[in-house]
């Protein structure tokens, strides 16, 4: 094969040399500093305003006060974050599983897609503020209404991502498989389903952020414990510092879950990593 020289990108990774730990840290700092600087500036401005404008801490607490409250109430915050996490993950699991099953169903039975999609779109127009108390009214203060509400807000984006992913399949790939004598199920398993993987993870990243908000909203409408109900009672006791402490916890929770989906994607799609590493 002298006519076709090996491309440099085909060499094993070790032979090309990787940037190394120091280089990666430097790169991360380089990428992250604008966002970090902006957040720091906002927090600083907020701190100055709260300290020197004479505004009451029961209206706008300073970030330093919020931080102090987080440390002081860490046990209560953790105790309330756990039910929220459980509701989020259970609802999200239910939502992903049912979105996957229905996406497969509508992919195989086209008329069903035309029947179901309008219903799903309508489900997305329901205002959560109105629906959450009703769901609590119907299903009580337990875990079930929270799971249902999380599923309600995350199902549609997952479903749309999957269906779009199936439709993104290269036409030539399907033609090729049919020319090989593949059945419809084989075409789905070998081409349509793997083609949807990047879309699936995009949907996952978007809806995991909705999921936490959904769980907190459900708790807000009525719960024994959880970050939502914690925020509500803090607000009723005129403690905005505690509300913000809980907000911080929910944001942290969302970020951790978001990071989890990114990690799962990296592990589940080794070929994507190779593409980035290979630079081709």
């Amino acid at each position: 094969m002298s006519a076709d020289a090996l491309p440099a990108t085909a060499l094993p990774r070790a032979a090309r040399g990787s940037p190394g730990l120091l280089g990666r840290v430097a790169r991360t700092i380089h990428l992250a500093w604008p966002a970090t600087a902006l957040v720091a500036a906002i927090v600083l401005a907020w701190e100055f305003y709260a300290q020197f404008s004479g505004i009451k801490p029961t209206i706008l607490p300073a970030p330093s006060r919020v931080l102090a409250q987080i440390i002081e109430n860490r046990q209560a915050l953790v105790d309330n974050a756990i039910p929220t996490l459980i509701a989020t993950l259970s609802g999200f699991t239910l939502s992903v599983a049912s979105a996957f099953l229905s996406s497969v169903l509508v992919d195989f039975v086209r008329p069903l897609r035309r029947a179901l999609f309008p219903v799903f779109i309508i489900s997305q127009t329901l205002p959560l503020v109105a629906i959450a108390p009703l769901v609590v009214l119907w299903f009580g203060f337990g875990l079930l209404p929270k799971i249902l509400l999380v599923a309600l807000v995350t199902f549609f984006p997952m479903m749309v991502a999957l269906v779009q992913g199936y439709d993104s399949t290269e036409k030539d790939m399907e033609w090729l498989l049919r020319s090989m004598g593949a059945s419809r199920a084989q075409v789905f398993l070998k081409a349509r389903l793997p083609s949807a993987i990047p879309f699936f993870f995009t949907g996952l990243r978007i809806s995991i952020t909705y999921a936490v908000v959904g769980a907190i909203f459900a708790e807000y409408a009525g719960a024994a414990n959880g970050l939502g109900i914690y925020m509500l009672s803090a607000k009723n006791n005129f403690r905005p510092d505690l509300v913000l402490a809980a907000v911080f916890c929910s944001a942290l929770l969302t970020l951790i879950l978001f990071g989890g989906t990114v990690l799962i994607q990296r592990l589940a799609t080794p070929w994507e990593r190779v593409r980035k590493g290979g630079g081709k």
Binding site: D4, P7, A10, W271, R275, G278, K280
Partner: peptide, 9 residues
Amino acid sequence: YPSQLSGGM
């Protein structure tokens, strides 16, 4: 993976 190959390959 295919993304690591040249067009001819």
